[in-house]
């Protein structure tokens, strides 16, 4: 076999399908915490992502009206814009935020719901998340939902009609990596819609571990934006997500406690 004869699925294996639409990459990236919009764009492009999260905030009235807009740098024609509800601590605020975002984006229904519990942990407030998800789905939104790694509540969200289940792997912005592989595995095993790790990835190996568990995608922001060289880290993440997916599809060797030589013993020169 040569390189051109790789399995036919090699490229489609790295796509992500959410709510009936297929995206080129299983990596989703946020746009917060960058030095400027140009760096944001460069990192987004380097990551190879098709889905970019943004947040919605009040315009500064009377100030800097000529300043460039984020969407000039990551235009909706080039990327799918995924509005989030970062900063919302109750269902009503989250629903209102996404209704505003939908209007801003000309009616597109895909959104990321996150209802936070407190400022220290940014852990999801699950009762409010469930309440908001129900309202949004009734209102026609395709809800990708940031949630705890509790398989019971993940199932409730899926049964309700959320289009992607997005548990945290560790705290938002912590870079602590995949602290809950067993809980994530339980969720992956039971869930029919995409499972996307939504928080906690710190470096490329974390993204690979998430994908090796069988996740359908990884969403990250700080790990790229706060790397010393965000553009290079975006490249690393692109490759790590692909590597992790390939490893998952390849199926790892069984772990064993005894050594097993890679070279045959037969014919050994003594």
């Amino acid at each position: 076999m040569n390189l051109n004869d790789l399995p036919a699925g090699a490229n489609t294996d790295h796509q992500l399908t959410v709510a009936g639409k297929t995206y080129a990459s299983k990596l989703l990236v946020g746009t917060g915490k960058y030095k400027d919009f140009q760096e944001t764009r460069d990192a987004v492009v380097a990551s190879g992502t098709g889905i970019v999260t943004v947040t919605v905030r009040r315009v500064n009235i009377g100030q800097h009206q000529d300043e460039p807009n984020l969407l000039d740098f990551v235009p909706p024609g080039e990327f799918t814009i995924l509005p989030n509800t970062g900063g919302c601590y109750n269902a009503a605020d989250a629903v209102y935020t996404l209704q505003m975002a939908r209007e801003m984006l000309g009616g597109h229904s895909l959104c990321k719901l996150e209802v936070l519990g407190d400022e220290k942990t940014l852990f999801p407030n699950m009762p409010e998340t469930l309440k908001a998800a129900e309202t949004l789905i009734k209102d026609g939104f395709d809800v990708m939902v940031y949630c705890s790694d509790d398989p019971i509540q993940a199932k409730m969200l899926e049964d309700m009609g959320c289009v992607a289940i997005m548990p945290l792997a560790s705290l938002i912005g912590s870079g602590m990596g995949i602290l809950n592989p067993w809980n994530l595995s339980l969720i992956i095993e039971q869930t029919q819609v995409p499972v996307i790790v939504d928080a906690g990835v710190g470096t490329a190996s974390d993204a690979a571990i998430a994908m090796e568990l069988g996740c359908d995608g990884v969403l990250m922001n700080t790990a790229i934006a706060k790397a010393r060289d965000p553009i290079r880290m975006a490249l690393a993440m692109r490759d790590a997500v692909r590597a992790g997916r390939n490893a998952y599809l390849a199926g790892r060797m069984p772990r064993r406690f005894a050594a097993s030589p890679s070279s045959p013993m037969a014919g050994l020169m003594t």
């Binding site: 746009t31 943004v54 919605v56 315009v59 807009n69 969407l71 801003m104 912005g173 922001n221």
Partner: peptide, 10 residues
């Protein structure tokens, strides 16, 4: 009245 726009976020 609230007027909002998109800014960077995760």
């Amino acid at each position: 009245i609230e007027i909002v726009h998109a800014i960077g976020g995760g």
